[in-house]
């Protein structure tokens, strides 16, 4: 049998999210400009941080696991403001 490789999009499509109308995490682009490591990009298990050509980081709060890894590893002092989503919204694991 061959180990099946699935795309990251297909992987994320297995997870149920109820999208909150307001973002629960905000990222301060100015702080990211000066950050050389941008470890959020590789650490986030949902791949929500994308490095930009201008030195910034593009962040999308949709499909967030609400795990907290991003703010714990962040090198840009205080760049990430982290909260839980509004009650009832966000990720809903069925087989966690």
């Amino acid at each position: 049998m061959i180990v099946r490789h699935i795309s990251f999009e297909d992987r994320m499509d297995t997870v149920v999210f109820d999208l909150s109308p307001t973002p629960h995490i905000t990222v301060d682009g100015d702080a990211c400009q000066g950050c050389t490591t941008k470890v959020c990009v590789s650490v986030c298990p949902a791949g929500l941080f994308v490095p930009m050509n201008d030195g910034g980081v593009l962040f999308n709060y949709e499909q967030c696991f609400e795990c907290g890894a991003c703010y714990l590893v962040c090198d840009g002092l205080g760049a990430i403001t982290w909260h839980y989503p509004t009650g009832g919204f966000g990720v809903a694991f069925r087989r966690g």
Binding site: M1, I2, V3, R4, I6, D10, R11, M12, T14, V15, P45, A46, F65, C67, G68, A69, L72, F93, R94, R95, G96
Partner: peptide
């Protein structure tokens, strides 16, 4: 893909991916 793990988990259908601290 580790030889000690692969025979146990290969194939099948991914039902859910998750992460937690």
């Amino acid at each position: 893909t580790h030889p000690s793990i692969a025979p146990l988990v290969e194939g099948g259908e991914l039902l859910e991916y998750s992460a937690h601290l």
